[in-house]
Design a protein around this nucleic acid. Structure first.
Lengths: 157, 157
DNA sequence: ATATATAGTTAGCTTAGCTAATGAAATCAA
DNA sequence: TTGATTTCATTAGCTAAGCTAACTATATAT
């Protein structure tokens, strides 16, 4: 009889992927609850996050990052602008385009929200033994490394 | 001079929490892209997932799990029912309430979607050395353990 | 028996998603 | 250098997803 891996190639990876996927979903589902305190909806908070960390960014690139169509982002940016969280500057390279930047208020709001999430999670982690925390730290590094496209050219957009 | 931890208690946990949080966000953001193939919107897919894995479940409990208000869920369930993905049965304990159950079609649709996500992630994991995959497997177990409320009574709903 | 609380839906609003069409600038062709 | 085509963003107009307030119906408590 052949080995398990030969009978079902990739089975171990799929089981691992399933576990990681499930853990990530449950983790973020729990943390999402504290975002109510930000006063922003989830889509706006997510868009603001991209603008803060990837900005200055073009409207179309933000739409792609958020996996929505440009008109959706266009209106969200208007709303964020009205709330004084984001400003637009003209793209010096291309005068059809604009670059989106977070304001100081936008950065503060996002930072506060992130700190609430992190504090909530940190409170859960504090009960873990040091050994397990080290495993989680290594895992975070590994997961971040596979999300970077460097080295492996992406084949699906 | 005092130790770092004494100067800033919980700093190590917050750094760890930040890394895990960030890794989970980026992971799920990437995987979300394959959900387009399901033909369902993200909110419906999420609700269906809860019904499949936690069902039979009451409408109000589903609303709480999804962190939305009952009217929002009420209409989503109607839509899922119209598509033949979910059915309602009367709660034998309480005739005001209903229990939601996924149909075979609903379970198949969700299962196919999950397999697409898992296959995508598994494809990324296959490039990792065995040692790192073992770290990820342990991390998944640790993360799942802290999300379980057993032992620690939850204080914030 | 009456009052109160709970489960879910309906009504009506705003926000978030989409496609199609438009305006304006960039790029390509001839 | 014009003219055609592509690209960036917005507008228009629709459906879906979020909310609160108000309602119906059943459960529970007085």
């Amino acid at each position: 009889m052949k080995s398990r891996a030969a009978n079902d190639p990739g089975k171990a990876e799929r089981e691992l992927a399933d576990r990681i996927h499930s853990a990530a979903i449950h983790l973020l589902r729990r943390l999402r609850a504290v975002d109510r305190a930000s006063g922003l909806s989830a889509p706006r908070l997510s868009a603001l996050s991209v603008i803060v960390f990837a900005g200055p960014i073009r409207v179309g690139d933000l739409a792609e990052a958020e996996q929505v169509r440009p008109p959706t982002i266009s209106r969200m940016v208007n709303a964020l602008e009205d709330e004084g969280l984001v400003t637009r500057i003209l793209d010096p390279q291309d005068s059809r385009a604009q670059l989106l930047q977070a304001t100081a208020k936008g950065r503060r709001l996002l930072q506060a929200g992130k700190e609430r999430r992190v504090a909530q999670l940190a409170g859960e982690l504090v009960e873990l033994p040091q050994r397990e925390r080290r495993v989680l730290l290594r895992a975070a590094g590994i997961l971040e490394s596979i999300s970077l496209p460097q080295g492996h050219p992406r084949r699906q957009g």
